[in-house]
Deep mutational scan, measured.
Amino acid sequence: KFNKERVIAIGEIMRLPNLNSLQVVAFINSLRDDPSQSANLLAEAKKLNDAQAP
């Protein structure tokens, strides 16, 4: 279950337009470290993406 959620979360994070490459890598590394947190990490990535919108 967590592996599928992690793959989906990674794909979504990679498509967030307002994150820089270091932020994307940090979120992906966090997902690798704890796949059970996929939903929480994706939500945090989306919040950061929205906050950094031009």
Rank of each mutant, 00 (worst) to 15 (best):
I10P: 01
K4P: 15
Q37I: 08
Q23G: 00
D34F: 07
G11A: 14
L41T: 09
A51Y: 11
D33F: 13
Q37A: 13
E44V: 10
N40I: 12
A43S: 13
V25P: 01
N40R: 12
A39L: 12
D33K: 11
G11P: 01
R32C: 13
A43R: 10
P54E: 11
L41F: 08
L42E: 03
F2T: 09
A53Y: 07
L22N: 05
V24C: 04
V25S: 14
I10W: 03
A45S: 02
N49F: 02
D50P: 00
L16A: 01
N29V: 10
P35M: 09
A26H: 12
R15I: 06
L19N: 01
N3S: 04
F27I: 05
P35N: 06
M14I: 10
L48P: 00
N18G: 03
D34E: 09
Q23T: 02
D34M: 08
N20C: 05
F2M: 06
N40V: 07
L19T: 00
S30H: 13
V7I: 12
R6M: 15
S21D: 08
R6V: 15
V7Q: 14
R15T: 07
F27P: 00
R32Q: 14
F27H: 00
R6Q: 15
E44P: 01
E44K: 13
L41H: 04
P17R: 08
L19S: 01
L22C: 12
N20T: 14
V7E: 15
V7H: 08
L16Q: 02
A43I: 12
G11K: 13
V24H: 03
P17H: 07
E12R: 09
V24F: 03
R6L: 15
D33H: 13
N29L: 08
S30P: 02
L41N: 02
K4S: 15
I28L: 13
V24R: 03
E12C: 08
L16R: 00
A26T: 09
P54T: 10
A9V: 10
A51G: 05
D50E: 13
K46F: 07
N20M: 03
L22K: 11
A51D: 06
A45Y: 04
D50H: 09
N49L: 01
N40F: 14
K1V: 04
E12A: 13
P54A: 13
F2S: 09
L48C: 05
F27G: 00
A39S: 11
F2H: 14
D50Q: 12
I8L: 12
K1H: 14
N49K: 01
L31E: 01
P35G: 08
A26E: 12
D50C: 06
A51Q: 09
L42N: 01
N20K: 09
K46N: 06
E12D: 09
D33E: 10
E44L: 04
L31S: 02
L22V: 12
K46R: 11
K47F: 09
A45L: 02
D50Y: 06
K1M: 12
Q37P: 03
G11D: 09
L42A: 03
S36Y: 09
L41V: 14
L42I: 06
S36D: 03
L42Q: 03
D50L: 11
P17K: 10
I13V: 03
A51P: 01
Q52L: 06
N49G: 02
N20W: 06
Q37C: 05
A53C: 05
A45F: 03
K47A: 10
I8K: 13
R32L: 14
K46G: 03
D34C: 11
I8G: 03
R15W: 03
S21C: 13
K47Q: 12
P17I: 06
S21T: 15
S21G: 10
N29W: 08
L22W: 06
L31F: 04
I28N: 02
S30K: 09
K4Y: 10
A43N: 10
I10A: 06
K1D: 15
N29H: 06
K46C: 05
K47E: 11
P17D: 05
K47G: 06
N49P: 01
P54M: 13
S21V: 13
K46A: 05
S36R: 07
S21E: 12
A26Q: 13
D34A: 07
K46Y: 10
D33P: 02
I13S: 00
A9S: 03
V24N: 01
A45K: 00
R15Q: 11
E44G: 05
N49Q: 01
D50M: 11
E12H: 07
N3P: 03
S21L: 14
Q23Y: 02
V25D: 08
D34L: 05
A26S: 13
A53W: 07
S38T: 08
K46T: 06
R32N: 15
I13Q: 01
